[in-house]
Amino acid sequence: MTPAPTPETAEVGAPPPPPSKKPAPTIDSKGPQRFKALFTWLAFIVVIVVCGIRVDADFVQLFSKNSMDNVGRIMNDLIRPDWSYTGRILPAMIETVQIAIAGTVIGSVLAVPVALLCAVNVMPKKIVTIPARIVLNLVRTIPDLLFAAVFVAVFGIGAFAGMLALVFFSFGLVAKLTYEAIEAIDPGPLEAMTASGANKIQLIVFGVIPQALPYFFSYVLYTFEVNVRAAAVLGFVGAGGIGLHLDQQLNSLRYDRASTIILLTLVIVLVIDYASTYLRRKLL
């Protein structure tokens, strides 16, 4: 049996359509384009120069003997990491990863109901979606380090403040990505569930979750990757983790030890990134 001819099979042998339907650029359209490119470059240079002046960038100072000596000395220490220091920072390194894990997991769990409330195909009522989105956007405007600084002020120095900061940060990121994924799911199964007499929660459990879950997990993993990096610097504001040690070693000019911390962090981040990317590819 041969299947009914589809438009594609019917057109076999026909030349492939041109890649773009845009007309070839003529001299008329080239003029403004060239002007646009030139203008973009001009604007770019002006922005850089203005910014440089505002922050007192000084090329003479940048390349002065003094600066170069400093760079040389620091580099000299940095390429000779103090490996004996590794054992002493290992607990802080583990704490960093723990902060990232706890922050990601708690924040992602909290993100689920909010993502559902934000998605118009699940919540057709604007009275619900609009306030939910406003809350979400407010949370997302605040950077993680600011959260950390605030929580350190409230709960004191330590890993708890850092974890809480990452809870808020992960919540914002996962909720936003997930609700956008939910809005893009196939509406067919939702319609079928409604037709079969399902209530809202049943519709979510059988129509939305099976479709959105792989995306959600993928976003959680991605957020974890981001959080490990964020957790590594949270210590600079006193919110626990390896950052505190890095801050101390930098301040006491122990660049050999700082180098150990940076290299160890790099290894951890790379391993987690690699594992996470692998898992995410498997999921989708």
Binding site: D186, G188, P189, E191, A192, M193, T194, A195, S196, G197, A198, Q202, F206, G207, P210, Q211, P214
Partner: peptide, 30 residues
């Protein structure tokens, strides 16, 4: 009332990544 009315769509409207059995069971939620 909807539970007593089955509906079949042109585009099937199945959850594609779920198993066949899971899809059929979802008809029981009512």
């Amino acid at each position: 009332i909807r539970r007593d009315i089955g509906m079949i769509f042109q585009s099937f409207n199945l959850v594609k990544r779920a198993t066949v059995l899971r899809n059929v069971l979802s008809g029981r939620v009512g």
